[in-house]
Nucleic acid binder design. Structure first.
Lengths: 108, 108
DNA sequence: ATTTTATATCGCAAATATACGATGAATATG
DNA sequence: CATATTCATCGTATATTTGCGATATAAAAT
């Protein structure tokens, strides 16, 4: 884009958009799904269930991390990612208060 | 991307990702907000409240339309956009069944 | 019939995202 | 110590998104 206008929007718009954007790729949705289903924190075996190279999965994990959707710790040779349910719930709450006000109105 | 691997993911992953991606820009979140707050179907006055050119807003509207988040009718010189609450609810439901299964588990 | 108004689309430039292989860093294992 | 394992990061190619001005379209107003 010639000029990036993203900073001219409100903080809530930006937060919601960042959250949504982080989930805006099937690989990242799939990663979240794997993390949600896993009882223990599986580490990098995510790579094995995705049709992507290890470096690509690592990039997607970084994006989810930046967006606050997951948290991770690097324990030496193995790293450990989990869904950050606190942030997840925060985003859900913003989402709801943002949209679920006038839901029944409809004209076309 | 050298090779687009998006089609190697499941249908649910793709649906959720498309929905999230459509909301993954503050301009589109702002448009949805305006539409949600409006009692009657305001038409293109969205342009006036956004810090973007008319053609850019038109493009964002098209993307929301393609994603099924809004519906629109062109009545001659004015067009009319509304949130498609049916699809909105469908996406919310998929979202919930996708993630809210194992929410209490946490290891890092 | 011409002009105005509202919106969509085209074409372009710049920015971002996606994907991979290669490489690096750090621990574990022989 | 040498090697293997696990993961992150870099560099790079390509694809997609973003944004605008210009232009098209189509009804409404003059």
């Amino acid at each position: 884009m010639a000029i990036n206008k993203k900073q001219e929007f409100g903080a809530e718009e930006l937060m919601l958009a960042d959250f949504a954007k982080a989930l805006g790729h099937p690989a990242r949705v799939a990663i979240m799904k794997v993390l949600a289903e896993q009882k223990t924190c599986i580490c990098g075996q995510i790579v094995e269930v995705l049709p992507l190279a290890q470096s690509t999965v690592s990039q997607h994990l970084k994006e989810l991390l930046n967006a606050g959707l997951i948290s991770g710790t690097v324990d030496g040779v193995k790293s450990c990612y989990c869904i950050n349910w606190e942030n997840f719930a925060r985003f859900e709450s913003i989402f709801k208060t943002f949209f679920l006000e006038a839901r029944e109105q409809r004209c076309c």
